[in-house]
Each structure stands twice: as C-alpha cells, then as structure tokens.
Design a protein around this nucleic acid. Structure first.
Lengths: 250, 250
DNA sequence: TTAATTTTGATTGTTTATGATTGATTTTTG
DNA sequence: CAAAAATCAATCATAAACAATCAAAATTAA
C-alpha cells in the first residue's frame, strides 16, 4: 500500500468516525504501528488532523467543513463519492431538484462552486444549502416528520411550477425487474413528479440498494440514469443492459 | 474508548441533561470512577463544566451560551404573554397560518393541546412544531436566508391552496396612520395573502413596534385584530378607535 | 548492476492513562 | 446532632501509548 493511499485511508476513516484509534488504522491498513505513527505525525504537520493520545481526531477547522454533511449515515464514503460524481454532471447555472435523503445531502458541498439554483423537498438539506450559500427554493407540502421531507398534493403541485435541468433522487432500492422503489407512496409520487419536470434524472444509490425492493415503485430503471458504487463486474453489466449506469469505487 | 471521545461524550450528556451524576457517566462510558473523576477535573479546568458533589453541571457561562439561541430575542417575556393570549383565540381543530418571526414562534407551545393543523412559511418554526407534535404544512417558495422565511410567487401561490380559520402574523411596525408594515415587500405580500385566505387575522406585536413604520405596508390597522403589550392607556385608546386591540401586561 | 536514498518494522526506554485502594470529606438520614 | 452512607482526592502499580533509534527492506538513481 502506497504512503499516500494510506494517508487518504486515514483521512477517510476520520471523516466517517470523527476520532480513530491507532489500532483501528493498523487493522485497516495492515501497516506497522511505527508507520502509522509516522503518518499521523506527517498529517498533523500538514494540518489535516490532530493527534491525540491513542489515535487522532479531526481538527476543529476540518470538523466544521464536514459537519455540514451529517456523518451518521451508513456507507458515507461511498455516498460522498457517488455524490461527487453526480456533481460532475451539473453545469454552471443549472436549475436542479434535490430530493430529500442522505445521499443527495452529500451532493450539496460540491454544488457550491457551480452557481446553481436548487429546489428541494428535504428539510434536512436546508442548513447545508444555506451554509454553502446556494439559492434555494423549497417545495410546499406536509412535513413528514420521520424523514423531514415535504410530501402530499401540495408538494406535487408546487413542483409543477418548476422546470429542472437536472433532478437528483435518492431511493431505497433499485432492482432490475422492479425498478426504483421507496417505502412511502407519497414520497414516491414526489420523486416521480420531480423527474417529469426535469430534462434529465439521476438516481443516486449506494451498493446496499442493489436489487432491493421497497413498497412503492417510482419508475423503471431505464427512466433515470443510475449512479451507484462498489458493485461487481457482472452486476454492472446486468444494470447496463437496462439503463445508463455509472459506478464509482471507494 | 479514547480520552477525548469520553470528554465529548460527557459534554454531550451535559448539554442534554443540564446536570449529570458520576454514575451516569460511568455507565455510559464503561470507564472507572477514577478516570471519570479525572475527566471531570480536566474539563472543569478547561472551563467546560462545573463539578458538583456527585457529578457535574454546565457552567453559568456555558448554560447561557446554549440558552441564548432560544432566548436571544428582545422582549421575550412580553412576546410569550402576547402569544399565550393569542392562543386563547385558537379552537380545537382549527387550521391556522403561522407567520415567520420570533413572536409567532412563541405561540407554538400553546398550540400543543389544541389539535390544530398549522401552515407556516417560517423555517425556524419547524423544530418547535415537530417537537410539539403538530401537523404542519410548509408553504413553498424561495428561502430568504436572513429571516429563514419562505417568500416569492411560489409562496403566494401555495398559500392560495389553503383556507385558514385563523391567521397569526408578525410585523415590524404598526402605526395609526400607516397601518402594519415590514421591511421586505415580498414578506409583506406573503402576510397579506395569508390574511386574505383566513376567516380572521391577528397581528402579534410587542410594544416596541408601536407607531413604528417600516418600508412595505401589509394593510391597515383595521384589517386585523392587534394583540400587543405594555402600552399606555391613551395609546391603547387611540388604537382602539381604529381596530380591535388586545393588550397584555407583563 | 551497484550505490544511495527512502520507507518500513522492530526494539528500546520514557511518558501517559488507567483502575484499584486508601483514608478524608461531604451529604444524608435517623 | 451524631452515625451512616456516599462521594471525594490522593496515591500507587499496571498497562497502554509514546518518541527515538536502528537495521532491514524497498525504491530510486547512477
């Protein structure tokens, strides 16, 4: 394993877990204690992290950078990589719809430099959007308190007032036969409607959603481009037969 | 568990519960009594907390830092009294519009027992509404980041989908001649529209708004019932000639 | 290929963190 | 108010983490 790779691994671990123990890093990298100590020392000098007795922690500054996006979620690294790739499809001046959900949340920091206008139904996105100084419109609707998403006929209707260049959706499952699905029919309806108002739709989903099926169908695989991560070659091939799919590895 | 992690855990517990016992911390962290004592000692020296017999508590300074976010507004006592009185006009099962702003925010706790449906354009209200388990609809629209209010044509349009039993507005000034005013014409428009969709409108304004004039007029004094506080007799009389006014004293 | 340089992992003695124990202090209880 | 209980600070031995050093391995340059 290359030194820089190891450094990156350490930083990634930190972003996920806030603090890590030396032993953790040793296990993940299969490097010796001495090496990791040296790594930590180097990274500390570069201001990337702060060493503490027994391991390392994010510096105050770095912590703030990442606190924008929540870190409780699973597969956060993969989600961030997916989001980063999705962001590469966004052009300057685009009007985009950003669905509620943790994966789409990761997209926000990457939009900062793009001068976009965002419409969203995700209340949890607001802090990050405001913090990144992005012009934001909220759909109306009923607040579903469990997911902090706006749903219902009012959400649908207000969506119809917009036209999007791109639409980025999260889902709970994607399946070769059953398409994109999510547990709540109301949310599915919002996603579907947003898609119909967009020139191009992207679904962001980490590998845990592969061949998962949830209650409410949004639409077929082919109705949106899929951006996902860490799949096997044959899995990607199956998907590629059905839809436009991009896969990122972490 | 790393030392700094433990420290963070302790501080988090404190923020949640104000005071904690040593035993509590021991249970949460699986560290020994000695260790926790040392932790508390360290944190006390850093000014993060104050030790008390049997545990720890937030320092006066830190407590203020946290409560300041809620109570930073001026005339909070008066606003709460005004809000409480306004709540007495709310009936069980009412559908009400709650304008953005600090005064209307105070209304929320009093709505808990009333089984109401709330529509609001104030993003700062959401936490309180959800916490009080109130069914909430959000208008759509552009997020005005300074006040976290939803404004613009989309907000206006989504308001027109509702009919309210009552409508509670905040303003920046009320004046016998110039009526109710607020700095932002867009916000004024939202307030006005909400009013037109309501059977009855109330304006909530503390005494600092008396005879103040701001840029954008919402409507005349007589177009809404005024609930205010701590005015002088003759001031109330002048107002009473123009509109339905209630005054609460604190 | 060899020599120089860098990176690595093991070893050393040193420092720091931890948990158990003790007796002192404070709080509670009768 | 005094006895009992709980909490506390101080001490100590142990264990963990540490920086420093050095030789082996890997990489690069000549």
């Amino acid at each position: 394993m290359l030194t820089t790779e190891r450094h990156q691994t350490i930083l990634n671990l930190l972003q996920d877990k806030q603090t890590i123990t030396l032993q953790d890093i040793i296990d993940k990298t299969n490097a010796s204690e001495s090496t990791i100590r040296r790594d930590l020392s180097t990274l500390e000098n570069n201001g990337e992290l702060a060493r503490i007795h027994g391991g390392a922690t994010l510096t105050e500054r770095k912590r703030k950078e990442y606190s924008i996006t929540e870190k409780s979620a699973k597969n956060i690294q993969e989600k961030r990589a997916i989001a980063k790739h999705a962001a590469s499809f966004v052009s300057d001046g685009d009007c985009i719809f950003l669905d509620a959900g943790t994966t789409t949340l990761q997209l926000i920091p990457f939009l900062k430099e793009k001068d976009v206008v965002v419409v969203t139904n995700g209340l949890t996105h607001l802090d990050a959007l405001i913090e990144n100084d992005i012009q934001t419109y909220l759909t109306g609707g009923l607040i579903k308190s469990k997911t902090s998403a706006l749903i219902g006929p009012q959400a649908i209707q207000s969506l119809k007032n917009y036209r999007f260049d791109k639409c980025f959706l999260g889902v709970n499952g994607y399946h070769i036969l059953y398409g994109y699905t999510t547990p709540d029919p109301d949310e599915a309806h919002v996603k579907y409607t947003a898609s119909t108002m967009a020139k191009k739709s992207y679904v962001l989903a980490d590998h845990a959603k592969y061949n998962q099926v949830s209650f409410a169908k949004i639409y077929d695989l082919s109705d949106a481009a899929l951006i996902t991560g860490n799949l096997q070659k044959n899995e990607i091939q199956h998907l590629a037969e059905r839809t436009d799919v991009t896969e990122v590895s972490t």
